[in-house]
């Protein structure tokens, strides 16, 4: 698994629960080191081990933990760069949803060896969608739930999300847009770059 993925888990634990909790996780997962490097590749099993360890240390069920990670990735000040990159996907939340199909391609432009899970958006009506995620990491759909929830807030949209099942590496999320201009959301200024 790419170091960026593992590093994201580490940053989530450190920023949300403190550095000492992360050390506990790293020790429990028996990584043999404390810090993941963003730009190195690690064995896939390590990601599973660290997620299991984090679930135990933080006393959060795995699915909740995954969703928390997704929310963190978009809403924490330390991950503002990522929120901006996602906002490039579209001017509206619906445009953003449609841009998710391109996410693996977009990611490859920036980091060629980072393989993102395959995501496919199905639109059933103007306000009803499902997102199909194919990932080797179980619970990736929950991460996407967290991301979508936070991005809906970001766009000022009220959306109801539901994880409607998983199996054979495929997870599905149903998305129901209730109000498209629910709140002002957060601003996205093309020119404002993250230092």
């Amino acid at each position: 698994m790419h170091g960026l993925t593992n590093r994201a888990i580490q940053c989530f634990v450190t920023d949300s629960y403190g550095a000492s909790k992360w050390v506990e996780c790293a020790q429990m997962a028996d990584l043999g080191f404390i810090d993941f490097e963003s730009m190195l590749i690690y064995p896939d099993q390590m990601t599973q081990d660290i997620l299991n360890a984090a679930s135990a240390v933080l006393e959060r069920p795995r699915v909740d933990l995954m969703e928390d990670i997704g929310t963190y990735l978009v809403s924490h000040t330390n991950t503002e760069a990522l929120r901006r990159l996602l906002r490039f996907g579209g001017v509206t939340f619906v445009e953003f949803l449609h841009s998710l199909d391109d996410l693996p391609g977009r990611t490859h432009l920036a980091v060629p060896d980072l393989d993102m899970p395959q995501i496919e958006l199905l639109d059933h009506s103007e306000s009803q969608f499902s997102l199909v995620c194919k990932s080797p990491v179980e619970g990736f759909g929950n991460v996407m739930m967290g991301i979508l929830r936070a991005m809906a807030d970001d766009y000022g949209v009220l959306a109801l999300l539901e994880h409607t099942g998983s199996g054979q590496g495929v997870e599905t999320i149903s998305i129901n847009l209730v109000v498209t201009e629910f709140s002002a959301g957060r601003s996205f200024d093309l020119g404002a770059r993250v230092g």
């Binding site: 990159l85 490039f88 001017v91 020119g191």
Partner: peptide
């Protein structure tokens, strides 16, 4: 940044937004 332009100021077939995206992603 100077002129406060948004995605809507560029034609949707224009690659400017993709380029801005790429600059930020590559910088990160």
């Amino acid at each position: 940044g100077e002129y406060g332009l948004t995605s809507a100021d560029f034609s949707s077939t224009d690659l400017t937004i993709e380029m801005l995206y790429l600059i930020e992603a590559k910088s990160a």
